[in-house]
Design a protein around this nucleic acid. Structure first.
Length: 412
RNA sequence: GGAGGGGUGGCAGAGUGGUCGAAUGCACCGGUCUUGAAAACCGGAGUCCGGCGACCCCGGACCGCGGGUUCGAAUCCCGCCCCCUCCGCCA
């Protein structure tokens, strides 16, 4: 949600910033301005009438006589009309506002920009399914649940647990509180994070219970302080959420159909931060630095991409992707990303803090992937592969429950 | 799944149709007093919207949320959400 005051003050500026994301948003800004002006007009009239009613009732101090009652009833009837009109205009304005995406920050590029490439690449190699064998069981997964579902088995389960332990230790040292959130949420949580209205085709719904399965723990973590005024000395708040994530992948037909690169269910450790607005840009770089540090720890070659504004989700003002080199695909693929959502989500969720000066203000929120476990396993397998088909795992994972070296595939 | 009780300011807790944004206590902030502190006393303090992007001021709204009845709703009615107790079931 954008700040209505900002739209009133500088509608052209807002429209110009939004037009970088496409032509629709600018038109919506116009509609918002128009609806808001009418809303304010009606509101002024309604409030004046309420003031009259209040004054009359205060003067009465008891039951009115018939003449007074008739006069007051007339006021009340006018009040109902105005009040209906006010509610309707407000609903229209708010719906239009809710459909507006966040303002990209000026630093966000128009098109994807590769900022740097780090690490030594294995030019080509076996892909993760060849290396994993039956430890990634696609066929039985499909028999159970359909395409894009898999059983993870054996060593790879221990590898997942090691990755989880590694990530939580690392993030705890960075000041993040570990959280395991619910993955079933009500609609306001998705609205508040900007996934609704925007990406409904990606979301699993449970209509019998009015619940949604979340595609990322970002949704639950963002709602952790919903409707709260967070004490200023408790800032910044940093959370490391671990949860399964569920995505319908509608519209991805035919894309990434091999293996577990794109599946309907995967586990992920997610970083989520609440910070004062002026610190959001620094925090964004901090998240990116953590993501790069994880890549380095895991010995995964990668590149950093500043995402173009036309690829930003509704809530993001700026986003970086960290793309891992996958020898099996001979190209870079997205492994993690981090977004600065400024005050867009905080405004929708009403998460505020009390600045040293002035009234409560909305916080900024940021999110970033620490470890997307499925894709990280792919990257570890493909980049750690040896000529004999075994896989060497990086020292950062040693002693956390997984073998230091994964045996070659059993060929099944 | 069944039965019952309850949601009022930071907290506790009054208020069951009329001057109630709401008694009282605690906590908090300022002041008087004091060498200093405590106590006592005096005063202040919430959030949101609009007027007017700031202060003051004015008006409006907010007693879980949303509707309704009424000249008038914290109070009556309807729906929803949440919490608690008991029974059943369950990991």
């Amino acid at each position: 949600m954008l700040d209505i005051r900002l739209i009133r003050r500088d509608p052209e500026g807002v429209a110009a910033a939004l037009s970088r994301r496409g032509p629709q948003a600018a038109r919506t800004v116009e509609a918002v301005v128009e609806l808001d002006a009418r809303w304010r007009e009606v509101t002024a009239a309604l409030e004046q009438l309420r003031a009259e009613q209040n004054a009359a009732n205060r003067a009465l101090r008891g039951a009115p006589d018939d003449a007074q009652r008739a006069a007051l009833a007339e006021l009340a009837a006018r009040g109902r009309t105005l009040s209906d009109e006010e509610a309707s205009l407000r609903a229209q304005r708010d719906a239009a506002m809710a459909s507006l995406p966040n303002l990209p920050i000026p630093e966000a590029p128009n098109a994807d920009e590769v900022l740097r490439e780090v690490g030594e690449r294995l030019p080509a190699g076996r892909d993760h399914l060849e290396l994993a064998g039956s430890r990634i069981d696609m066929e039985r997964g499909a028999r159970l649940s359909g395409s894009r579902f898999a059983y993870l088995r054996g060593d790879l389960v221990m590898l997942e647990i090691a990755l989880l332990r590694y990530a939580m230790d690392k993030l705890a040292a960075e000041g993040f509180e570990p959280v395991i959130p619910p993955v079933l949420v009500r609609e306001p949580a998705l609205y508040g994070t900007g996934f609704l209205p925007d990406t409904e085709q990606q979301i699993y719904t449970l209509p019998d219970d009015d619940l949604y399965l979340t595609g990322t723990s970002e949704v639950a973590l963002a709602s952790l302080h919903r409707d709260e005024i967070v004490p200023v000395d408790a800032l910044p708040r940093r959370y490391a959420g671990f949860s399964s994530c569920f995505r319908r992948e509608a519209g991805a037909a035919g894309k990434d159909t091999r293996g577990i690169f794109r599946v309907h269910q995967f586990d992920k450790i997610e970083m989520f931060c609440f910070v004062a607005p002026e610190l959001a840009a620094d925090e964004h770089l901090r998240l990116l630095a953590i993501e790069e540090s994880i890549m380095a720890d895991l010995r995964i070659p990668y590149r950093v991409v500043a995402i173009g504004v036309d690829d930003l989700g509704a809530s993001a003002a700026m986003k970086y992707d960290v793309e891992a080199w996958l020898p099996g695909q001979r190209r870079y693929r997205e492994l993690t990303s981090c977004s600065n959502t400024t005050d867009y989500q905080a405004r929708r969720l009403d998460v505020r803090y009390r600045p040293a000066e002035g009234r409560p203000a909305h916080l900024a929120t940021l999110n970033g992937t620490a470890v997307a476990i499925g894709r990280t396993i792919i990257a570890l397998l493909e980049n750690g592969q040896q000529p004999d088909g075994s896989v060497t795992l990086p020292p950062a994972l040693h002693g956390l429950g997984a073998p230091d070296r994964l045996a070659p595939s059993d060929g099944r």
